[in-house]
Amino acid sequence: MEPNRKQDSNRLATFVWVLALILIWELGATLVAQTKRTPENVLPHLYQIVESVFSTKLVNGSQTAFQIVLANAGITLARAGIGFMLGAAIGFLLALLMNLMKTVEKIAFPYLMIIQMIPILGMAPIVLAVTKDIDKSRVIIAAILTFYPVATNTLAGFKAVPGEKLELMHVIAASKFEIYRKLLIPSCIPYFFTGLKVSAPMAITASILVDTLQGGGGLGTMLSQSLKHAMTIYVFWQIVFLSAIVGILSYHLMSVIEKLAAPHRWARKVKLDEPAQLDEPA
């Protein structure tokens, strides 16, 4: 089958599945609406959630529900973003150091393995207790969650460079700096991005979770308050969907940046024995 047609049919299937999910949700919501006194607490209709986004009713005296969500999303996501970038930088540097120095690799490697096994998110409250600052905690937790997938993946990227390529560099007497700049760093970019793709949604989750620990601001705080009925429950539902959408988008954002950073991986393979098809402007 032609690749294009196949892609189209996959897209169609995806679309149908999304419709099916919506249908299931709506069936559930209808059922809940008939049996519960406050169905919006359990499972509101999707249109009710959409409606609440555009509602102009002021929820806390000065803001609508959606304005509250957006304002708090800014706080949470900015911290998640800072932590994410910090973690990505530390992770990359650690991988670089590990590859440069055997001793660093030996010291850090077992801890990188162990950190994968332990529940960092569960440590969020204690980080808050030690730092006593909600902003710092958000950044730190997001950074820790980002740094180890990035470090392990980038290190794997360095290790995956074929020996022949390294030997070629040695034969032409390239300096260590040149080897890293021209060979090792470009080859580990896809691995680096694999790490970023894993950790981007995690950084957001972490930031929201840290919010719930203290009453400052942020999506997590609003989520808990809304659940405790301190404000309309639709704030909760909006946050649920917003965090899901942002989580998915963060993953795709990394893919887009990867395409910009390493365009050669996405170029279509040209076969030698096929007649060349040039993309001529029409």
Partner: peptide
């Protein structure tokens, strides 16, 4: 034919924060 599309949707679940799902 239908499975791949379904899995694409399922894999999107991966990015949804647990915090949103738990409540």
């Amino acid at each position: 034919k239908w499975g791949i599309g379904g899995l694409t949707v399922v894999s999107a679940f991966n990015a949804i924060p647990i915090i949103a799902v738990a409540p």
